[in-house]
Every structure is written in C-alpha cells, then in structure tokens.
Design a protein around this nucleic acid. Structure first.
Lengths: 233, 233
DNA sequence: GCAAAAGTGTTGCGGGTACACCCATGC
DNA sequence: GCATGGGTGTACCCGCAACACTTTTGC
C-alpha cells in the first residue's frame, strides 16, 4: 500500500481537574500543561501529547500521555476534535487528534508537578504554543455544555458522593449557584442515582446520604437508549 | 523535524440528501457511495474520500472529494469524528478524519451517478468496506440529534422556502409527523426566520409565505451566543 | 437551644403538545 | 361552493425555578 501523505499525526489531551482556588472557597477548573523543550515554541506551555505510535489506539495514546505527565488515570476520556489547519505548526503539517479528560479532584492534589509540568487555572492561561489556547477554549465549552445534559460530573468525584458534593461540581463548572432542592429532585428523578444507604457523619449538621451512579447503561447521556454514542475508540 | 509515525491520514465524508422514495410520498435520506476499485475490500461500496494532501485543509479535502464524486457543493459541512482503530484497515494503519455534509435536494437530483458511484437509502445500506457502516450510523445519529436543536435543516433547501417545506425536511429526517401549527410557532419565536414578503402562488390553496434564514450569526445553534462553535477548520 | 446543612412541600411560569377553528386560493 | 393546505387561537400538561418550611446532627 502506498502512503501518499506526510502530515504528522499527533494526539493531545486537555485534562481537567477541580482544585480549590486561593482565597476563594469555591473550586475552579485547572489543567496541567507541559513546557516545550524544543523548537518550535520552545519554552512555551502546551497540552500534553505526542506522536501517535503505529500500533496504539487513539484513546490509549491520549490516556498514556495523560498518565506520563500527571501520573493520573482519567475517569472520563472522550475525543474532542481533530485540528489540522495547514499553518498551525510552523515548518511541517501536523494533524492533532485531541481528547479531553476528567480526573478525580482528590487524586489531582497529589498529581506530579515539576519544572516542566505545571497546573494552571483554566480561565487564566498564558499564551500557549501552537493553537492550544483555541483548543482549550473549545474543550471548556464542551465540558460546560455537556455537564448540563449529561452525567459526567461524577467523573470529578469518587465512587460514592453526596448530592452536595455533586452539586458543587456542577456549580464550579458552570460558575453559578444551583438550588440544592431542585438539584436534588432533578437528579433523583433522572433515575441514574443509587442510594447506597450509607451516610456521611461527623459534620455538625444532619448527615448526608451517599450515592453512587447506576452503571447499567441506558443512561449514557447520548440521546435515546440504544442510540450510538460517540465511538469509544 | 522528525516524523515518528507512519499511520496514513485519510479524509472521508458522509453526504446526505433528501430524495423522494419510491411508492412512498415522503422523502427519505440518501447518500452517495463509491465502489472500491482496488484492495482492500475491492468491489465493495465505501464512503467518498481519499488521502489528505500535504497542503490542503481538512474541510477542503472533504469538500473536494464530495465534489469529485457527486459534482455537488455542500451547503453544510462539519467534522464528525476521527476513526483510527488499529485494526480498521487490513495491513496498514489508517486514521480517517470523517466529515458529514448536507446537499440541496433539488441539486441532488442531477448529481453524478455512474458505474462506480451510486446513491443508497441511508437506512438500507449494503455491507460497506472497512468500518464505514458504523460511521454512517453515527453520522445519522448526529444529523437526527442536531436537527432537533439546531437550524441545519434548511441546508437541504434553497435560499428561500416555505414553512411546509422546512417541516417536511424535519419530518423526513426525524421519521415522524410534526404538527404544522406548533412547528410554525416554534420557528417564528426562534427569531432565526425572516419573512421575505413573497409568496408561492399556483397551488389550489392559500399561498404560502416564503422565508429565508437570518444570517446575522447569534443563532448558530451552539450554546449561548459567543460560545465557541466546533472549529470550522 | 442554636447554627448549619440535609431534605420536603408548594406555587407559578414557560415551553411544548393537542386540537379546534378561520383564511385564501384553484377549480 | 368545495377541497386543500396556510395560518391563528386556546387549553392543557409537565418540567423547572423560586422559596418557604421541616429534619437531624454537633456543639
């Protein structure tokens, strides 16, 4: 078979985690970036990623580079978009298949950070290499849009969680307060929550119920059940 | 710069048009396929597409192959998904950036058709080459989902149209009847329609108003105005 | 008891659906 | 006039936002 093109194929990932903001009690979205150690854009911050190995699935390559930069495993990973503008990388044509990922907040606290890996507040990014600012902006829009109609918010949390914890994730992502009463009813009537029967004690108020998500598909958040979700590859 | 991967980069397009179905008065979704003239899958039907030229934008490559197979220009073109499973093409790794397109129905009637290009009803496809059946299924899901919340249906029509024509497009895509009265109000209150003042005469009933779409953005169908739409590249 | 957050009840508004009804044209 | 689709009016239902209220804990 003859390969007639020479564009390089890269895979990059926008990784989101929730972190407590300084001064503000609210959690905000943060993401890890890596400093480029070679041309082009040497010294600038960029999304984690790399060339696509011949024998590796696209999503696997995204999860791997994610792990290599943060030492974390994603709880959610989905293809975002493929960026391939002719001029987006100086010198050579590069087509980047970009994924976006969510990682658990408590794990993100002990994520790797070093000279060439640093976490940034998602809405206060410096000028990034290539078209990565535009990519992050689009990923943020997708995250905020999808949180409103899908059940991805729990990817920031552990297996079990209280409704208040889940509501705080929504509030942090959407940047607006939500009514606790209505939030509770909306999720309870969605049928995706399972009451574990356990409670969280210790706080000086009524103990909150612990929930977990119903994994029996049918609630994937993509149209009517049975509809094709975005391919998982 | 060192290119460290050798996966081949292809661009393919799922092209939709509405055509009158035999016997049934309703229009249904059709799409053009090309017969493969070489291995692998020689003789089988496949999506139009080709290798990505070094200096061509992704969307341009999609529009070009679309034009080469159908002699048509798309009225709507959007990136669908990038398919890159390791085993999806026998022998060599192929990553396909897939677009989906809508073409006008009246033009589709005079679209090119020949020995190696043929139109098929979208829900009665034969077994296609590679993973193209899965790709079409996903494109159909995206089209049907997006018609319900976005304003893409007019891409099947000309510059001006009656509300009945637009409703028939929705009905054909969604495969269910819609109430004419409510359909009218929903669209009128959406603020995206502009009354041209002209009417369609000649039928033996009250003449229908001709509308066109308001092009002054702000109604792109992607979240709140100003939100990043899927990159247009 | 008091503070604080969990959890419940209730009301009203708005968008969508169903369906009855009037309007304008060709024949 | 009559048939046919264009176009309007209206009542109902349901989901959601607002907000008052009750419950259960720690101190």
């Amino acid at each position: 078979m003859t390969v007639v093109n020479h564009a390089a194929l890269a895979v990059s990932t926008v990784i989101f985690a929730l972190r407590p903001d300084d001064a503000s009690a609210l959690k905000t979205l943060w993401l890890p970036l890596v400093r480029r150690t070679r041309q082009p854009h040497e010294g600038q911050w960029a999304l984690p990623g790399g060339w696509l190995p011949d024998a590796e699935q696209l999503a696997d390559a995204a999860a791997r580079t994610l792990h290599e930069t943060t030492s974390l495993a994603p709880t959610y990973l989905e293809q975002l978009f493929t960026f391939g503008d002719v001029g987006r990388s100086p010198g050579h044509r590069v087509v980047s298949v970009v994924y976006w990922a969510l990682v658990q907040s408590d794990e993100a606290a002990r994520a790797a950070e070093g000279e060439n890996v640093r976490w940034f507040a998602a809405d206060q990014l410096p000028g990034l290499a290539f078209d990565h600012n535009k990519i992050v902006e689009y990923a943020l829009w997708r995250l905020r849009t999808k949180v409103e109609y899908s059940r991805i918010a729990h990817a920031f949390l552990g297996d079990t969680f209280t409704l208040t914890q889940l509501r705080e994730v929504h509030e942090a992502v959407l940047r607006r307060p939500l009514d606790p009463a209505n939030f509770r009813r909306t999720l309870e009537s969605s049928g995706t929550l399972v009451d574990t029967g356990r409670h969280v004690a210790g706080a000086r108020h009524r103990p909150a119920r612990l929930y977990r998500y119903d994994d029996s598909d049918a609630h994937s958040g993509h149209g009517p059940s049975g509809a094709p979700a975005p391919p998982h590859t």
